[in-house]
Amino acid sequence: MQKNQLYKGSLSTIVLKLLNDKGKMYGYQITREVEKITTGELVITEGALYPTLHKLEAKGLLSVEIKTVNNRPRKYYFLTENGKRETVNLLNEMKTFIQHMDVLLNPKLA
């Protein structure tokens, strides 16, 4: 299994957490920030990111603001109030999952 497949199921949580921490961001900015934070270990493709952003927007977790930058429209994504609440819930679920995985992978430490 490739490491990126491990992240694939967590992409929504990763995006929500990043927007929660950084505020408004556009797609390319999100991909670069994830690469920076993970020192290049996780590369999010446009083909994975934009469907995730659209899904989160359709669920009412994200809103979009379009600004013109260098005479080109740019979509900035940001969390709605529901998105902020959902981010807290997903992060709590992720922490619990990581704790369970740690116990399963290191039973002598439990």
Rank of each mutant, 00 (worst) to 15 (best):
L19M: 09
K67A: 03
G40E: 10
S10G: 04
I37F: 09
T13K: 07
T38F: 08
L90H: 02
Y7C: 04
T39I: 12
K59V: 00
K95Y: 13
P107Y: 15
G40L: 12
L104R: 15
G60D: 08
G23F: 12
Q5H: 07
K22F: 11
L105I: 08
A48N: 06
R74G: 00
Y7S: 05
A110G: 14
G83Y: 00
M94E: 14
R74E: 05
L42D: 05
L16K: 01
L49N: 01
V64E: 00
K59Q: 11
K22E: 14
L6E: 06
T96N: 14
S10Y: 05
M25N: 03
T38G: 10
E33W: 10
K75R: 11
K8E: 11
E93V: 08
N106Y: 14
T87D: 04
L18V: 05
G27D: 02
L109T: 11
K67F: 03
I14C: 05
I37R: 15
M25E: 03
E33N: 12
V103A: 14
E41V: 07
Y26W: 11
L62I: 04
L79A: 00
E65R: 07
Q99C: 08
E57Y: 09
T13H: 06
P73S: 06
E41K: 11
H54I: 03
M25Y: 02
G60N: 09
Y77A: 02
R85E: 09
E81A: 02
N89Q: 12
I14W: 06
V15P: 03
I37H: 11
T45P: 03
K108T: 14
V69N: 05
L11F: 03
R85M: 06
Y50D: 02
Q99A: 14
K95C: 13
N89R: 14
P73C: 03
E46N: 10
L6C: 01
G83N: 02
L90R: 11
L42R: 09
G27K: 00
T87M: 04
V69M: 04
S10I: 00
L6A: 04
Y7F: 09
G47N: 10
L18E: 06
V43W: 11
L61E: 06
F78E: 05
T39Q: 15
T96C: 10
K36R: 15
E46G: 08
Q29G: 13
S12W: 01
N106C: 12
L42W: 07
K84W: 02
A110R: 15
N92S: 13
T39Y: 13
T68M: 05
N92Q: 14
R85F: 04
L19S: 07
N71Q: 11
I14V: 12
T96A: 15
L90M: 09
T31H: 04
A58Y: 07
T13C: 07
T31M: 14
H54T: 10
N106T: 10
K108A: 15
Y76D: 00
V64G: 00
L49E: 01
I98E: 13
E35L: 12
T96Y: 15
A58T: 07
A58E: 13
I30P: 00
R32V: 12
E93W: 06
T13Y: 05
M101G: 11
E81L: 03
R85A: 09
E41N: 10
T80F: 02
K55S: 09
I98N: 11
N89F: 09
L109S: 14
